[in-house]
Design a protein around this nucleic acid. Structure first.
Lengths: 345, 345
DNA sequence: TCTTAGCACTCACACTGTACGAGTGCTAAC
DNA sequence: GTTAGCACTCGTACAGTGTGAGTGCTAAGA
């Protein structure tokens, strides 16, 4: 029940034609520029067939055809030829990527900027999950009224902080210092997940029952590491969306912008892509979140040379220049990974 | 050359009518609902006068009049009556403001959310300038390759970090600890500006010339405190802008969204408002930044009970429900100030 | 059996003319 | 100084029309 050679070639031509022009594509257009010389009538028969199978629709009787989400999906999965970046494009990305990004956070912001400016769509970057990063340093600062500020630093220089409320007696400065030293010695180099495991393990050991300081330290730690710090997602070039003629109605744009603000569904998607291999392409209504109807999302993960840390990509209309954007996303992720690898060393 | 009683009343009616309906207001509408019983013809004469003075324009010959920016300015300065919030509105703000905002940053985000959701426009919050806050704690973490992560904590629990590149010999862990202790003892309780002054002062003292550790400490500090950490601005409910029928053309919306992303002009405006007293209203083209054409900005500052820390407000179309939004902005700032005062104690 | 030319048909879109109504400015009377 | 009346302007909504792009179907040709 697959499509034959000719249908494939016609579907390909329609999708690419529509991506390029934004207009519905008619049979004559295809017949004219097709290598296999066919008449418009023949093309029409094939198109009718493709429409019946759900790859195309015509917006109205006397218009050409445009791809459905299923059509895009098929195109992306089997027809898409990723074009190579030109030397100047590569250079442009490299320059921007190297420009003063001492801080990890800055590097990721810069990546978002590259993605949006090179693609003219919206760039998105999921910052590393804290749970996946490696512990480097912890610090406590006692604020007023029993509030304790905890600052973590990961191996790659990412800083996160959290305030916890202490009840009961407050530790003195020197006790706090002892706890700090203890935790820094014990936990350095472990991933947060390993840290969690270690705390549980130590709490069960008898010795912890008798050493008050240690008990405190473990008590704190458990509270601190108990819940995940929410992941952060960087969005750049949202205004580019307004340039896209595909979003005619305000309500669909608004839905998208609200999704940008709420972030959690975006995080879900990016998180999924982080666990996958290679470049992922999510298309409009085929994603479970309806706010992305009419949009496509091209993402891939970035690493520190060993394990995936987060993911980045581009969101734009379904009628997106896939072949170009895939190349941009891929190359940006490579550069970010390389930069993070250096930092982690 | 001022306006007489009657002109004022008519201008007021036109501005409020237009804010309520979004339509140009004609002479008959005014004549009908005016207290001082005047015929449409008389009203027309006054309107012609107001138009000549630049307070009104008519979009075309046979349309009613709409206020110019100058008209809005005049309305806001002399005619606007701020309405009181209802008990339920107040309560709504209070509830949201108190909901789990242990961290200053969270509190400010929450304030942004309140501003946007209560006004249906876009909420903006300028986070406290680091320079204006009070030093509480500093911490160093040595990363790889001579990069030094510096973490500051302000009195109110705001955390900022910065990476500096060390060249020459690196300090050992214990030297770093000494420096940390030294700085924490010396600088605690000072504002960042005072910190700067103190560093310069100490560097000039002879003793600094001979004590290597101290020299290092002062050298670091100078680099760290030399440039301002860029202020942060929180924007919430940008998608609400898309709901406003006033922004018909995409280009003006896009300009605004780009301004939201670039932030620096917004920071400039908010910073100005921070230095002023009370609620400030900026109207469209009267602001030096042209990306805010067609928009108005209502802002005020918030404090920690003593000095202004930052500012917050609402951005929306010039045709904005001023009387309501002013009340919302004012009350939100009061609550934020109160919450920060408690934290600072 | 596949391909193609021809033809009738559909439909969006652009253009035209028309009627309507809202609102204006001006003038003259009160 | 105020107002009624009137002629005028202009945007908008509506209906009618022509055009062109593109289709589906059918029948003839390879």
């Amino acid at each position: 029940m697959g499509l034959n050679e000719r249908s494939l070639s016609i579907l390909d031509a329609i999708v690419e034609g529509h991506i390029a022009s934004g207009e519905p594509i008619g049979s004559r257009t295809i017949a004219d520029r097709q290598k296999l010389r066919l008449s418009p009538a023949t093309v029409r028969n094939v198109m009718a067939d493709l429409e019946e199978r759900g790859y195309l629709v015509s917006p109205h009787t006397s218009a050409g055809r445009i791809p459905t989400d299923k059509g895009y999906r098929f195109y992306v999965d089997t027809l898409l030829q990723v074009r190579n970046l030109t030397a100047s494009e590569r250079q442009q990305i490299e320059v921007q990527c190297n420009s003063g990004a001492a801080q990890t956070q800055e590097l990721l912001k810069q990546a978002g900027r590259i993605l949006s400016s090179m693609s003219n769509y919206t760039g998105i970057v999921l910052a590393p999950r804290f749970a996946a990063t490696t512990f480097r340093h912890i610090e406590f600062v006692l604020l007023s009224q029993g509030r304790l500020l905890v600052i973590f630093v990961s191996q790659s220089g990412l800083v996160q902080n959290k305030i916890i409320q202490l009840d009961g007696k407050l530790p003195t400065a020197s006790e706090l210092q002892q706890i700090t030293n203890y935790l820094n010695d014990e936990l350095c180099g472990l991933t947060i997940n390993e840290v969690r495991a270690k705390i549980v393990e130590q709490m069960q050991q008898e010795k912890a029952q008798y050493d008050a300081m240690m008990k405190d330290a473990l008590g704190f730690s458990q509270e601190i590491f108990s819940d995940d710090i929410e992941s952060d997602v960087i969005i750049d070039g949202a205004a580019n969306i307004l340039e896209q003629p595909d979003f005619i109605d305000r309500s669909s744009m608004q839905r998208l912008f609200r999704a940008f603000e709420q972030k959690n569904n975006l995080i879900n998607l990016l998180d999924k892509s982080q666990q996958a291999q290679g470049v992922q392409i999510y298309i409009g209504s085929q994603v479970e979140f309806q706010e992305f109807e009419g949009c496509s999302l091209i993402t891939t993960n970035y690493t520190n040379g060993k394990q995936p840390l987060g993911s980045l990509g581009v969101i734009g209309p379904s009628r997106m220049k896939y072949s170009q954007v895939v190349a941009i996303v891929d190359y940006t992720a490579q550069l970010v990974s390389r930069a993070l690898k250096i930092k982690a060393e």
